[in-house]
């Protein structure tokens, strides 16, 4: 479904991704494990196309130069230079790190804004589905998103991505800063989206412990380079991974 070959990304002269290659097959959950500033967000943004927008904006205001080399293929098509809104129409939807939501808008309104490409009926249908997936949200429909807790905002952010009806869902550190209970709720929801709704998932995380047991395969990135990859189970038993990414 997704095939990334030799991806290199420079911010000015600093190399953020160095020859990364990765593959996601339809129906898989794939993990991208890496410590802080390993390049996870840069990778996710390059696949979602946000980096294309960043590059244009930086260029317009004479800011830093962003260069992208290598190629990204999605369902057989080269999308390396495709603008983000076209990728969204093709089913690549990202939920960015730190669960950004529209703070001034209510929970329901956040869904409505996210449903820009969908009909009112489709938005309503997904919204009801999200409320069953994340029951705590259903009691907060009229609450301003800025007043939600971090975990609730994360649920909302994932729910908003679902409203778009993704085929490939990119999740950038969905567990960051959540309590263990919230982490479990979010992880369970991700698995059910994959198994029951058939959504292909690529998710990034700093810590391997909650991720490896549920992913089909995972890639480990260090300093923008691939250091290891394999099935979730194989990586779980790898002593290097245990030492570096299992935390305490």
């Amino acid at each position: 479904m997704l095939e990334v070959n030799d991806l290199m990304v420079f911010f000015e002269n600093a190399l953020a991704l160095n020859g990364l290659s990765l593959k996601v097959d339809e129906g898989e959950i794939v993990g991208l494990i890496g410590s802080n500033s390993a390049g996870k967000t840069t990778f996710i943004n390059t696949v979602s196309g946000l980096i294309i927008d960043m590059r244009i904006k930086e260029k317009r205001k004479g800011g830093e130069r962003i260069s992208i080399y290598g190629n990204i293929r999605y369902q057989g098509e080269d999308i390396t230079e495709m603008p983000p809104n076209e990728r969204v129409s093709k089913g690549i939807v990202v939920s960015r790190e730190r669960h950004p939501v529209f703070q001034e808008s209510s929970v329901v309104e956040n869904f409505k804004i996210a449903g820009y490409l969908r009909t009112k009926a489709e938005i309503k249908e997904t919204m009801d589905f999200v409320f069953t997936l994340f029951p705590p949200l259903s009691k907060l429909k009229t609450r301003k998103a800025g007043f939600l807790s971090g975990g609730e905002q994360q649920m909302l952010a994932i729910g908003m991505a679902l409203v778009v009806r993704p085929k490939l869902l990119l999740l950038d550190e969905p567990l960051l800063g959540l309590s263990p209970m919230m982490q479990k709720a979010v992880m369970d929801a991700i698995v059910s989206l994959n198994k029951e709704s058939g959504i292909t998932v690529l998710l990034s995380e700093q810590f391997a412990r909650p991720v490896l047991p549920v992913v089909d395969r995972a890639y480990v990135v260090e300093n923008g380079m691939l250091s290891l990859s394999g099935t979730g189970a194989a990586l779980m038993n790898n002593p290097e991974i245990k030492a570096a990414y299992f935390g305490v």
């Binding site: 979602s48 946000l50 809104n85 969204v88 939920s95 960015r96 950004p100 529209f102 820009y116 991505a161």
Partner: peptide, 10 residues
């Protein structure tokens, strides 16, 4: 409210 997030919804 948040341009980059808006981009992620197409």
């Amino acid at each position: 409210q948040d341009e980059r997030t808006a981009l992620t919804f197409g």
